[in-house]
Each structure stands twice: as structure tokens, then as C-alpha cells.
Design a protein around this nucleic acid. Sequence first.
DNA 1: AAGTGGTCTAGACCACCTT
DNA 2: AGGTGGTCTAGACCACTTG
Lengths: 233, 233
Amino acid sequence: MTIDSRLSWTQVRDEIRARILNRTYAPGDKLPRDEDLAQELGCARTTVHRAMQDLSLAGLVERKRKGGTHVKADPVTRATFDIPITRREVEQRGSKYGYQLIQRSVELTPPAIMARFGLPKAIKMMRVKALHLSDNRPFILEDRWIDIRSNPEILEVDLTTQSANEWLVLHKPYSRLDLRFYAMNATGEIAKHLDTPDTSAVLVIERTTWIGAEPITTVQAVTTPGYQLSSVR
Amino acid sequence: MTIDSRLSWTQVRDEIRARILNRTYAPGDKLPRDEDLAQELGCARTTVHRAMQDLSLAGLVERKRKGGTHVKADPVTRATFDIPITRREVEQRGSKYGYQLIQRSVELTPPAIMARFGLPKAIKMMRVKALHLSDNRPFILEDRWIDIRSNPEILEVDLTTQSANEWLVLHKPYSRLDLRFYAMNATGEIAKHLDTPDTSAVLVIERTTWIGAEPITTVQAVTTPGYQLSSVR
DNA sequence: AAGTGGTCTAGACCACCTT
DNA sequence: AGGTGGTCTAGACCACTTG
């Protein structure tokens, strides 16, 4: 136990969190102003602010200017996930990475793709299907659409040796990201490419990015059976 | 456009981020010290620190005392997910929530459960199987193990009317959380409870919590076919 | 041992939002 | 219109970690 008279922001955070779990501040309640808490606890307002920032990020409280700080009425479990570049993911497992381009074309976006981007009408995009391999076995099958307007350079990239996944992540910043996870039964073509029995359950990761309001790319990454996603830390 | 001479931390963050994407600071590179950047950009060191804090949280850079700040060598996509209480989730979709207790017992933990907690040997835990309903149809099937040592009160809770899910989230803070997502084929008992065809692909959410080093609870939540998880914001 | 990020303070001003 | 959180500054000290 520290005898330091100074309070660290983590101590302040823990104290406030304890009060929330104590029901001193019940769900929906308004917390005291930062300044009042600072005075009560004996620290600077900035320190309380730092603690609140953390609690707010964790989803425990909600803060509004003038409105004050409120305990969130319904607690949620909030967790962070990292989706690495597929090559890196394979290599970090100590396996040999491989990559096969299956298809590369320019097509009109079907309704499902328009919906992902929120596009009002169909446009031409580049479509890339590719298979990522781990130790020469199928690992992830990706079906990707790339907006040529925001990514004209992609037309020049040799996608037989470098995956669009990697090229985009390294060269194209995004300002908005949408990630979705769901399960599906691997059907004919997908089961064939993944070399897995028909109707196997597979985890699908859908990732869509924009720069400003402009679409960049959307990809449906179908993993092989047994694939797991784990939260960070 | 603001003419203010003062730089906001978001401007500083955007500038640094732009340089990273520019390759001014390439992956793996060391960035200037906060203080040097502050002087170059004309702001306080604290402001650079705030910007770096954000970039660090986003997974773009890595910071170490004495080691300095480095651009992460391999970019990752980092996203946050919220897992609400099941009742809340159903109600927010505008559906009627229902709940059925299937089983409640005290059992020795099998190896799979010991592994989730990292337990060296089997102990007795409370096991609860329950079904969450949405508009009277199966929604999520949960199979939960609760450590009685850290949660003796659970033995007194009436789990026929209130789900363990809800009781624990509201009363038991945790200090560590592990979340996993994966897909599986619904088999006999699970398919029966979820009222879904055998071998249907379903998304599974596995959630394990500890308080300090002590296990609290672990749950395997099997969702119904079509269930999706979306990133926040 | 020393360098670098992390934190704390005190005070000022700003910006958003509710009333 | 005014209250509350958000940010910025300047300076000091701390704590981690690497050379």
C-alpha cells in the first residue's frame, strides 16, 4: 500500500467504479461534477477527468457537456479485437504463408454489396477472389470488392503475388470501419476452395471501409472450420 | 477552417497519422520524442501526448518509456464490440424477452472448463443451462459455470425467473475478461433447444471473467442461425 | 545511469448542450 | 444563458526500461 498523498487517476477510477458497483451511484444516476469529485477526493479536476475518460471508454458511464456524467443504465461487456493482416497471422502461428489469386474482374455491384456501402445505385468495382494458405492448406477465402474511383492504383498492382488485403492495409488509410462476424454453412464453391466438407460451420468476417463518405473496399473473409477470434489482452 | 493558432490534439493526431501513412515515419520507425514534436508543431508536450495516446489505443504506434514511440510494424484492424445483456438486446430489437431455466446443478469442472480458467485441478462449480427467448422463439442458449467460492450468493438467487447472465453482470464486477467467437454446427441437444435443423451453422460467444486471479464465471452462448455481431460506431 | 513516456497540478478558456 | 465537460499550457516529478 502506497502512503503517497497524491491520488493517481487509476485510484480515482477504481474508487468511482467501486461506488457504481456499490450502488452509491446506481444505474441511470447522475454523478457529481468533476470538480466536486476532485475536491472530495483531494486531487485536481484533470485527474478526475482522466479517470472518467477511462470509465467512459469502458462503457460504464456516459458524459455530456452540461448534461453531466451518468451511470449507464444497462451495462454492456465491451471488448476489443485485433484483426491482423492474414499473412502476419499465419506467420505468427509459425506456419508458412501462401496465397492464390482465384479471380480478378470488374463488375457491377450486386445489391448485397451496395447495401454494405449504402450505395444508392450500382457502380463498377474491382472484384478479387483469393485464397490465403497456411502450410499449404486453405486458411481464409476472401471475396473482395474495391472501389476503383478511390483506388485507381489498384488496377496497376500485380495481385497474383501480393494480396489485395495487404496492399490496401498498407497503402489505404480509412476513416470509417464496419466489422461484422457471423457463422455460415460452407456451401459448394466455398467448401471446395476451403477443402472442407459441405455444410461445415465457418466463421465469416465482413470488413467494410470508407475514406470520408467514399467507399474503399469491402471483403467477406471466410475462415476455415475451427477458426477463433479472441479479445485483446 | 479554423484560424486558431492553437493546435488541438486531434489535429496533432491527424498530422502524425498522415506522416505515418506518408511513409515519413515508416512501419517500424522510431518517431521523434514527444517534446521535439511539440516544439516542431508548436504546442505543449501534453497535447502531443494526448494525440499519441489515441494513436496508441488505435494500434498504430507503440510507446515505451525510454524506448520511445515506434510505428507498429504490422498494421492491425482494431475494433470494439459491445455485448449487451441478452434481455436488453432482445428488447432493443423491439421483441418480447423470455427466459427458461433448463438445468441447475453443482458439478466438477471438466477439462475444457478448467482450461478456460487455467485451473490446475477440477473443482466444484455451479452449472446453469438456460434459454433466452425472443418473441417466444429460441434466441440464445447459454451453458454457464459459476465459481461458488467467489460467488456464494448465487446459491440463493432464484434462477427460474432471473437469468444468471443478468444477475452476474449487475452484481459482479470483473477485472479480467476473455471473449471468443467461433462458429459451430448445432448438434443434437443444442439444435433441439434452439429449434433449428441439425448441422445449422451458429455463432458461439464464449465469455470468461475473473476478479483478480479468481474465476467468476464462464459461459458458452450459442446464438441462433443468422445472428450477427457488429462493431461499435 | 539516463532517457523517454506517464502523470499530476493549477489555472484559463472553449464548446457543447440543456434548460 | 449558463453550466458542465473538454482541452490547452507550463512546469514539475515519477516510473519504467533500455543501453
